[in-house]
Amino acid sequence: MFEELRDLYQEVIFDHNRNPRNFRIIDPSDRKVDGFNPLCGDRLTLFLKMDGDVIVDASFQGSGCAISTASVSLMTEIIKGKTLTEAETLFKQFHEMTTGKEEHIDLEAMGKLAVLAGVREYPARVKCATLAWHTLDAALKNAAASVSTE
């Protein structure tokens, strides 16, 4: 019944929605940032544990739609072990993949994150996918407060 949605709701997304990875609190954490999407009311809190320049652990709390939950779940998996600069680069690539020009996208390079590329076709849902990454961006810049997608 939902054939057309297969690009958006891939099995990986259902999987991460059902069983979000790193869904826990890191206490004490080195960076903790709240993300908020005023359009839909979704909230999440991102926790990072750092060793110098390297993200050694990442986790989150909060609730959202399948797209935003899968996005933050995948993100916490992928940024573990990355340096701040590497994570920042990933943020930019993810942003490009979901909102940028088609020809600039290198899906191969996105690895697992490529499953979220489908949101491009659903402008109303792009913010669901990018909320996690905007929150990460704020955490990378050490903005302690909170970030909103607006």
Partner: peptide, 22 residues
């Protein structure tokens, strides 16, 4: 276990317009 936004997108793919939000 299903967020209203997902309900909204799924129903939209069937041609059904509902509101999902606050």
């Amino acid at each position: 276990h299903i967020h209203p936004h997902d309900i909204g997108t799924m129903l939209d793919s069937l041609g059904i317009a509902i509101r999902a939000g606050h």
